Simulated assay, not measured.
Amino acid sequence: MEQRVHFITVATLDLDAARRFYVEGLGWTPTLDVPDEIVFFQLAPGVVLGLFDADAFLADIDAGSALAAAPSGFTLSHNVDSPEEVDRVLGQALDAGARIVKSGRQAAFGGYHGIFADPNEVLWEVAHNPGWRVADDGTVVLGPVEE
């Protein structure tokens, strides 16, 4: 198996609230929207986020009610160019209906970050990390910029 991910699919307890938050609140454009089932957003070349109605998600994976449908134990991260941009995005998310979990502040990794929860408790980290960048070939580079 190659080391890559194409779809990140999150079981979503309230798909309508999620759709309103991402489309109307954050201004995202769906790639595909199937009412009462799933909405997809392209995040990057070859990478899609799917917000899947929790009941449809459980039926799709044949789990019945054996698994909890609510997401936990992970964050999705959105990296920006400055601490000011972190605060701006956190404010935009708050205005769209997010709950601020951690306000913008200095981070242990040396940058600046904050965390919000969308209407279904999906956690998003918004970070400015001067040691994170994407090379021209699309490779993520972690660490100081070499001169």
Rank of each mutant, 00 (worst) to 15 (best):
L26M: 09
E85K: 14
Y112R: 07
L51Q: 00
D62S: 13
P45S: 06
G104F: 00
L94Q: 13
A56Q: 10
K102A: 13
F52N: 01
A108I: 13
E84H: 12
H128R: 07
I38W: 00
P130Q: 11
S65F: 05
E125D: 15
W28K: 00
E121K: 11
L26I: 11
P130L: 11
V89D: 01
N129M: 06
V89Q: 06
A54N: 04
L123A: 13
T29F: 02
A98E: 01
L94I: 06
G27A: 10
G73E: 09
W28D: 01
A59L: 13
G91W: 02
L67S: 07
V48C: 14
P71L: 10
D62V: 05
G104T: 04
W124P: 00
G46M: 07
D87N: 15
D81A: 15
W124M: 03
F52L: 08
L43C: 14
A96F: 02
Q42K: 12
L58I: 00
R105N: 15
D62I: 03
F21S: 01
A127M: 12
S82M: 07
F116S: 00
F57M: 15
G64C: 10
S103E: 15
T29V: 12
A107V: 02
A117D: 13
V48K: 10
G73T: 10
G111L: 05
R99D: 15
L76P: 01
D33R: 05
F40E: 02
D95K: 12
D55E: 15
D33K: 05
G111V: 10
P71C: 11
A127G: 12
L90H: 03
G50I: 01
P45M: 10
T75N: 08
L58D: 12
Y112V: 07
G46P: 03
S72V: 10
V126I: 15
A59H: 14
H78N: 11
S77N: 10
S65I: 03
F116W: 03
L123I: 06
G64V: 09
R88N: 10
A56Y: 04
H113I: 02
P30H: 06
A98G: 03
L51K: 00
P30S: 09
V89K: 04
L94P: 00
F52H: 10
W28G: 01
A68F: 12
F57S: 08
A117N: 07
D95P: 02
G104M: 02
Y22N: 02
A70Y: 10
L43W: 04
A56F: 05
E84Y: 07
G50H: 03
P30N: 05
K102G: 04
A96C: 06
F109H: 08
L26A: 04
V80Y: 06
N120E: 08
F52S: 01
A68P: 13
A70D: 14
T29Y: 03
I61W: 09
T29K: 13
S72E: 12
